[in-house]
Each structure stands twice: as structure tokens, then as C-alpha cells.
Design a protein around this nucleic acid. Structure first.
Lengths: 343, 343
DNA sequence: TTGAAAGCGATACCAT
DNA sequence: ATGGTATCGCTTTCAA
């Protein structure tokens, strides 16, 4: 639909100037005589001239749009990340286009397809749980599309990455649980092909080993869909509590897993934290609403968005310079609350 | 950035055809000889031809993009609405561009500006709390931009609207509270310039009047920013509980207000539902996580998104037909839980 | 300082 | 059935 009031041509005709002169006057570029520039600007303002960004993009081969692919929007963590992204992007005059993969590789590919067809200048992506490699990103990368990974990092592409200190967070959580006297700490998490999962696992191991506690591999549960399907979390919990020695603490890797675990324990009538402790990586807006309030590791989602967008735009605007991939690790904060017996 | 592998011109040159022939073959239109079409299609596929949507839009004056303006993304209700919108939009080949107003009229205008400059074919909007009228939308509307309002309806523009049954929901909630024996039911809500607020108020009044209970106007609290600022909710609650006769029940209009009230009551050590009942319009993913579980009215967010997108796209695709504004009211469901003493 | 004209990629009208 | 060409709105090189 044509929302445009007038075009450069209209201005040129009205003022008896050439297209080029008008274009230059509008851009404030080059040497344009003051009277002409003022005339043009005045006329443009008066008639509410608005440049056609499509035409500009077609001509300039850039769109001042950045595309974002994430697994799911209805998630307070990602919502905050988006806010961070937008705060930077809009200050630099970029429009942010958000798409979702719903944890499906197929959809991730479709989203990529859409975005690149619309001519984005750069891509921010947090890969889906199904994404094993970055083969689908390679063609775009090879053609020079700037890409920055955030949160869930894709492997195999030299690109900037921005993520939370997953290893440190898991370490802190586990250490805290051990300190509280829990010994059979179950860890419910995503598949190990995700670097994030491996990082958290290694934090978990580090804490456990430091404490000299034996690790029962049966206490490790990987949800194939990253917890996107409630059923898989429940199955994991069923298996955990069917063990001869069930866990006395649960370390959940995401909001969904934490929430499902909470409901599960409730339904079972287990007392938190007396019978089973619960803690997790989380970004619930208010973990203190739970009863008991939840011990969590809090990530700085807004900062993650800001950093990712900043790196991307930097990349977009100086694409000629060689890329030296940066790996940004954002510190996390352990918030001890009642669900781990510290209330 | 140019992600494009090849253009129509490249194909034309390679196959010794004219641009127009290639274009037609690609579109499957008109009478094109089978051998030629196949040759073109094969070449296109082989060289990974992807149409330049910018160029198409410039030429066709449509972009197959729809713009969405909402107050804030990190909100499970709106997240679901977006999912509904996308489910319809992507099935019809439209890209959805989401922007936020953060409850500010200024930002709402900026978002509109951005979207329309990018050439959207239609607009879905839930207005900010600060939005008193639709003057800022009028210029676009007058130029023929199809607009559909959802959730928070803007007034003064003949356009399709999609919203929950706010009147009925408030009626059901209030009636339920009265039935439970509560008599001093406070209502914390948004400013009355929002139709949604007025609808809920009238449902509240209807129930109260039916019950023959007197209404104390001091029990009505309007948050100027729709609860976007926690402080305003707390101030409202402070005032309510400073009353000579404080409320024995709270009816909150949004998730944020419900949550803030919950925390407030907790901090005060008030027993829910013994001392004060709490119920609200809500779309928490899990109101049963609260202790006590919250009585809520549940809206069908996904359906809202679907309907809004459906109406908009219908409008986009038959813009010539006269507009007969539809007003869609989606039914809501009362979910009684423990916070109103029914556990 | 200003103008003319080519071109970005795709489409559609007018010829042939 | 196919080709030539103008056009969408804007930018930019080259000339003047």
C-alpha cells in the first residue's frame, strides 16, 4: 500500500529542480546552496515527505533492518533480550524484525529464508534445540551476512557470540545445594549437543567434584526438545523419582523445566525444600511468587540483547575489516531463596 | 547486504531470453512454452535464484508485511497473541513485524512511523495506555492503510476490532466474589479513557447492582500507566488499605496488577483468601503456581491473534470492497481457584 | 552548485 | 509465445 504522500520527483517538479538536487538537499550531503536546501526542506516538511525506504534499500543494497531468530517469544527472558536489542538498534536507526523457530530446525530455516529475502543487514540468532550444526547458516555467512549468536550458540561458524556464564551459574547453584547438605542433585537440562548444556554440565561437575561427592549418571536428564514439551519434563521426573535412591534436589536448566518440576513436586506432595530442593536457571519475573520462593541464577537478559545488537551493528557498519570473533560471557547472579532450604 | 545469488537478468542472459520471459516463467503466468519454463525453472533452482522482495514491493506497491504495534513484548498474553497472528500471517505468506510502544504514546507514534516507512500492507494495533484518541492513526487510515485493533481498542476510527469479553469477564469475576460472601470488592484497573476499562467497570457494576450491594467509589483505583509502573499499583493498594473500611477482595485488571497485589498482600501478612480475596484478568501461564492458586478470567489470546490477523489480511486483499467494521468479542472463561476462598 | 542519466531488480504494457 | 521498454523511488557518477 502506498502510504507515501509525495516523492522526490514531486518536490523536484514543484520547485523546478532536478531529482538529484532534491535528493542531495534532503540528505544534507555535498555542496548545496543554502537557499535551495532550505526551499527543499521546507517543501518536504510542509508536504510531509517521507523517503521510500524500499527504494533506498534497493539502490543502496542495505536495509537498516536486523533480523532476529529465536525459539519462542512468549518467554520473559527472551522478551527482555529483545528489549535490549531494540534499545541499541533503534538508537542506531535499525528496525528489528523478530521471528520464531519454536525450537524446530525446519522453522528456523524458514525464518531465515524469510528474513534474508526481505534483505536484512545482519542476523541475531539463538538456535533451536533441534539445531545440531550451522550448515543452514553457512550460505548466508559465506555471502557476507553479519551474524551474531546469543544465548544458544551455534557451532562451526567464526562469529561473535554473547551468552551468560552458564558454567559459572551451574557451578554456583550446585555448590550452594551441596553447601545446604543436598547430595543427590538431579540435573534436568537440554540435549548435550547444545554448548550451553555442556557448559552447565561442566559447572555442575566441577562443583560436585570439588565437594568430593559421587555422581550418579542416572541423575542427569536431557530433554530432547529443551523442555518445550511438558511431557518430556514429566517423563524425566517420573524416571528420577522411580529410582531406588531418588534425588534430594533438582537443578533445572530453564524456566519451563523449573516450573514443571515445581508443579510435579507439588502434585506428588513433596515438601520443598525439606524433602526435595529446587533451583534453576531462570528468568521468571518474580520467582518470589512461588511458595516457597525459588532459588535461581539470574541472567542479565537486557544486557545480552544490548551486547549482541551492538556487536552486530558494529559488524554491519565496518564489514570490510577482518572479523576477529569475540566471545562475550555475561556474569550471572545467584539468588538464594527458600526453595533450597536457606529461607 | 546482497544475499541474492542471481537476479532475473542473470538468468535471462544465461539462457538468452528477455527479462520479461524469465519473469513470466518464474511466476508461472501467461502462456509460456513448456520447454522455456522448464529451462528457466531449472536454471533458477540450480543457481538458487531468490526473488528480490524489495524490488517486487517497489514495483507492486505491496510488501506482504503486516506491522504489529503492542505495548510490551515480555508478556505471556501478548506473546500468545503474536503466535496467533503469526499462525495466520505465515500461512498466507505475510511477514509479521512487531514493534513496541512500552505504553508510551510517543513511542507508539515512532513505531508507526517506522512501520509505515517500511511499507507495511496493514496494521494490527493494541494502543498504549497513554493513547487517548486515534488522531495519529488517521493520516494512515485516510490513505487507505488497513487497520485492525485488538485487545486495547482505539476509538474514533471505523475499523475491525477484536477483543475479549471484558464486560462479561468482570461480571463473572465480581459475581463469583459476591457469591463467596465478599462485599467490599476493590477494583484496580486502567484509566477510564480505555474502552476496555469501561467495559470491565460496567461488568463490575452490573454484578454489584444485581446483588444489591452498595458501591463505595473509594474502592475503585485507576492506574494511569495501566500498571506498567509498579509504584502506581502500590500507591493504589496503600490507599485502599488505609481506608476506614479496607476492601475484603481485590479484582485486578491485569497480570501485573494481580502480581503486585499478591506480593503486597503477602508483605502485609494478609491471609488470602481468609482476610482478602484476590482475583483477576490474567494470562499467567500458570496461576496455579501461586499459593493460593489464583482465580482468574482466562482470555483466548491465540484466538485473538488469529482473528485479528485474519480480518486484516482479508481487508488487505480486498481493499476495494467497502469496509463494514466488525466487532469481534471473544468469550472468556472463569477459572475458580483457591484465592477466592473456593478451594 | 546543479542537471542528466544510468541503474538497483522486478513487472507489465505494448509490440511482434 | 517472446522481446523491448518504461516504471517504481532513490542514489550517484559524470558533465556542465
Amino acid at each position: 500500500m502506498n502510504i507515501q504522500a509525495i516523492t522526490i520527483k514531486d518536490i523536484a517538479k514543484a520547485l523546478n529542480l532536478s531529482y538529484s538536487t532534491v535528493s542531495r538537499a534532503l540528505k544534507g550531503s555535498y555542496q548545496i546552496s543554502e537557499p535551495v536546501r532550505e526551499k527543499v526542506l521546507a517543501y518536504a516538511r510542509e508536504h510531509n515527505y517521507r523517503p521510500n525506504l524500499l527504494a533506498q534499500s534497493l539502490k543502496n543494497k542495505n536495509s537498516r533492518c536486523i533480523g532476529v531468530v529465536l525459539c519462542a517469544i512468549p518467554n520473559s527472558f527472551l522478551g527482555e533480550v529483545i528489549n535490549g536489542i531494540e534499545s541499541i538498534a533503534s538508537s542506531k536507526g535499525y528496525l528489528v524484525i523478530i521471528t520464531q523457530s519454536n525450537e524446530s530446525l525446519e522453522k528456523e530455516k524458514m525464518a531465515l529464508d524469510h528474513l534474508t529475502m526481505r534483505s536484512i543487514d545482519g542476523l541475531l540468532i539463538s538456535v533451536s534445540t533441534e539445531t545440531l550444526d550451522t550448515e543452514h547458516l553457512k550460505p548466508y555467512y559465506d555471502r557476507g551476512l553479519p551474524i551474531v549468536f546469543f544465548d544458544r550458540i551455534g557451532e562451526g561458524l567464526p562469529a561473535h557470540t554473547v551468552q551468560s556464564d552458564n558454567e559459572g551459574g551451574a557451578y554456583e547453584l550446585t555448590k550452594h545445594l551441596l553447601h545446604q547438605g543436598y547430595r543427590r542433585i538431579a540435573h534436568i537440562t537440554s540435549p548435550t549437543h547444545l554448548p550451553m548444556t555442556r557448559d552447565r554440565l561442566s559447572g555442575y561437575y566441577r562443583a560436585v567434584q570439588e565437594a568430593g561427592v559421587d555422581i550418579d549418571p542416572a541423575l542427569l536428564k536431557h530433554c530432547a526438545h529443551g523442555g518445550a514439551i511438558v511431557q518430556e519434563i514429566e517423563t524425566a521426573l517420573d524416571e528420577l523419582f522411580a529410582l531406588p535412591e531418588p534425588p534430594d534436589a533438582i537443578l533445572a536448566a530453564s524456566d519451563r523445566m523449573t516450573q514443571a518440576s515445581f508443579q510435579y513436586l507439588r502434585a506428588l506432595g513433596k515438601l520443598i525444600p525439606e524433602e526435595v530442593a529446587l533451583a534453576g536457571f531462570s528468568n521468571f519475573s518474580a520467582p518470589e511468587l512461588f511458595s516457597p520462593a525459588l532459588t535461581t541464577v539470574v541472567q542479565d537478559a537486557f544486557e545480552m540483547g544490548k551486547q549482541a545488537a551492538g556487536l552486530l551493528i558494529e559488524r554491519i557498519e565496518q564489514k570490510n575489516t577482518p572479523l576477529v570473533p569475540k566471545k562475550i560471557i555475561l556474569p550471572v547472579k545467584l539468588k538464594v531463596r527458600a526453595s533450597t532450604g536457606a529461607g
